[in-house]
Design a protein around this nucleic acid. Structure first.
Length: 607
RNA sequence: GUCUCAGUAGCUCAGUCGGAUAGAGCAACAGCCUUCUAAGCUGUGGGUCGGGGGUUCGAAUCCCUCCUGAGACGCCA
């Protein structure tokens, strides 16, 4: 309902003792489109007007009966149900889409920089489907923020430091085979780690050995450092293959080890600000005043902890990288940690602490259990992607044997299926991983959306508006001009500015034969309305850091388009009907395209 | 034990800043390809919105309580 809601609210505000903004908030879309396009429930007006909601509704209907915006309004009980002038709304929307008149983007975040912490896998461990969530949710949120004008810093905070590296080093020395590790680094290193943990149960002295090895690494002993560096390198090389496939891009890849030399300064600063206190031999920052447990800064043996490291990282992002806001896309199990982290920043006197947020998400489980790298109880993302791509490949071979870039498309579809499956459900609850569901192509899936996009491209291609293999980022024809020519210039004048709304111009439009209900039949109109919702949904998705809103909206758009495609012949229709249907097809294509881009999914022009 | 999050159709989930008859997809069954891509479209069946109280014109939505599941709760990250 791009802009229309606001215009209608302004008109209603002229008749009621309520502001335009409030009315815009009250206006809703009726549950059944047979009831109308917009509805105003009148319950909340009853008190102030001292009338029954039903009477108020009847009164409002009589006042707006002659509205330029409406073809009709009726009171059904306490609701005012309004039927929009389809020609007016549709022209407005098509023009907005063509000119990106705040339809696909905004400037809300202009001049601001936000750092997004995403993905953050652990070195020497497999990149599981659990890490997928952070990577793709984080990417989608970054895309959304960019569409709002923010500058984004996408930061991959790699887990490359900690006592477990001592264990891996010991394990490598005990049973590692350099050749085998080189051939298959992650899997081999992880199985060494798993084996170490099993042996640790019967040989407790191993733990001390691990700690000692990590101490040598911290002290910069050349042997341990070289081995660690090698492990980091081979792991990153492996992760990068997955990132390439997913299309994930980072502004910076900064491991935990990057902050080793920045820890002392943090401790000093805390100390200088008088925030550190001794407790049970450790140094902590008390957070009693905000009702949180204390934040551990330094262990009793003097070593720092991950909270210290995260503080160093937060300050680095703010001071050095220039981030005004920090967003952490990390699993919900770390809620408390981030609350503490932000609270400490606040106590340190940093105003940007209020601009920090933790975007939490549920765990990915298998058989109802948490995935565990230690037990080797994990699904490798690479395996899931491979499976999805291979299924896509065989469907393409069967349905589109002539496709020239079949392999490229298979990748886009397979990866798109996996990403969309995760993004459409961005709730906090845990996700039970099921291969068949993750790589499904039917129903509410990524491939369904991609298929619909390709269908729209195909129509436009056959109309001579798109070149083979292409899906242009902008309108492929200047629809508003075409429409204006066919629907008289007055339509255009009205559509381009709500200020120019007046009865005369609209009367002229309504007498124009080029545009009537037969042209904008129910199915076409339903599609137009769904497409028009995109701008509002995009805004909300960005503000709430919730990509699933985009996924759900694009599914509704696809469903409306596929019905339209089925019921309304496009290429074989004539005159203004054909023009309008092509315009709707192009608007749909652009909106699906933008949605897929925001979600970080490919949009092939042909499947 | 304390705190946080979740509980909606057989399955996976929307709807949760209170609004009209609680919606999709999958699975099942029945239809639709001489016509723009059938990865599609149409239809049928399927519900104590975890239980119980309360708040009001109105509750899946807000409050209280109980049940169930998951997670967090100081020297791991």
């Amino acid at each position: 309902m791009h802009r229309i809601k606001g215009i209608m609210a302004r008109e209603l505000a002229g008749h009621l003792p309520v502001s335009q903004t409030v009315l815009e908030d009250w206006l809703e879309i009726p549950p059944d489109s047979a009831m109308g396009d917009l509805a105003l429930p009148c319950f909340r007006l009853a008190k102030e007007l001292r009338q029954s909601p039903q009477a108020i509704a009847r009164d409002i209907v009589s006042r707006i009966a002659s509205s330029d915006l409406l073809q009709g309004a009726e009171a059904i009980g306490p609701y005012v149900n309004m039927r929009l002038r389809r020609d007016y709304a549709c022209s407005l929307w098509l023009q907005a889409i063509e000119q990106d008149d705040a339809f696909f983007s905004s400037g809300n975040g202009a001049g601001q920089t936000v750092a997004i912490d995403l993905s953050s896998p652990n070195i020497a461990k497999p990149f599981g489907v659990g890490h997928l969530r952070s990577t793709i949710i984080g990417t989608a949120i970054a895309n959304l923020l960019e569409s709002d004008g923010f500058t984004t810093l996408r930061i991959n905070h790699i887990g490359d430091w900690g006592t477990q590296f001592g264990k891996i080093i010991v394990a490598y020395h005990r049973y590692g085979d350099p050749e085998r590790v080189r051939a298959n680094p992650i899997q081999e290193l992880n199985s060494l780690y798993v084996r170490f943990h099993e042996e640790e149960k019967t040989s407790p002295e191993l733990e001390a050995q691990g700690r000692a090895a990590f101490k040598r690494l911290e002290d910069g002993q050349p042997d341990e450092t070289a081995l660690w560096q090698w492990i980091v390198d081979v792991s990153l090389a492996d992760f990068n293959r997955t990132y390439d496939l997913l299309g994930t891009k980072f502004t910076a890849v900064l491991g935990e080890s990057f902050y080793n030399d920045k820890m002392a300064a943090v401790v000093d600063e805390l100390s200088a600000k008088g925030l550190l206190m001794l407790s049970e031999g450790a140094e902590v920052v008390s957070l009693e005043q905000v009702d949180l447990p204390p934040c551990l800064i330094r262990k009793s043996d003097g070593a720092t902890l991950y909270a210290t490291r995260d503080l160093a990282a937060a300050l680095y992002r703010h001071k050095v990288l220039g981030a005004d806001r920090l967003t952490y896309v990390v699993g919900g199990e770390q809620r408390l940690h981030f609350k503490q982290l932000f609270a400490v920043l606040e106590r340190m006197g940093y105003e940007f602490a209020t601009q920090c947020s933790h975007v939490a998400f549920g765990m990915m489980t298998i058989g109802g259990k948490k995935m565990s790298t230690r037990k080797g109880h994990i699904v490798r993302l690479q395996d899931v992607l491979d499976e999805a791509i291979s299924r896509a490949r065989s469907i393409i071979a069967q349905k589109s044997p002539d496709l020239t870039n079949a392999e490229e498309v298979a990748k886009a579809i397979g990866v798109g299926a996996v990403i969309f499956n995760d993004l459409k459900t961005n709730r906090l609850h845990d996700i039970e991983f099921a291969m068949d569901q993750a790589v499904a192509f039917d129903g509410e899936t990524g491939p369904y959306v991609q298929y619909t996009h390709a269908r729209a491209c195909s129509v436009l291609r056959k109309a001579g508006l798109l070149a083979p293999g292409e899906s242009n980022p902008t309108s492929v024809a200047t629809w508003s001009e075409v429409l204006a020519n066919e629907w008289t210039d007055k339509t255009r004048g009205v559509a381009s500015g709500e200020e120019s709304l007046n009865n005369k111009a609209l009367d002229d439009v309504s007498t124009s034969k080029a545009f009537d209900d037969a042209t904008l039949d129910d199915v076409s109109w339903e599609l137009a309305k769904q497409v028009s919702q995109f701008s509002g949904v995009r805004q909300r998705a960005s503000a709430e850091a919730d990509p699933s809103l985009i996924a759900k909206q694009v599914l509704d758009i696809c469903q409306a388009f596929n019905r339209f495609y089925h019921d309304c012949p496009i290429l074989t229709s004539e005159g203004s009907t054909r023009t309008l249907r092509l315009a709707l097809t192009d608007a749909t294509r652009l909106t699906i395209r933008a949605s897929l881009q925001l979600l970080g999914i490919g949009h092939p022009a042909q499947l």
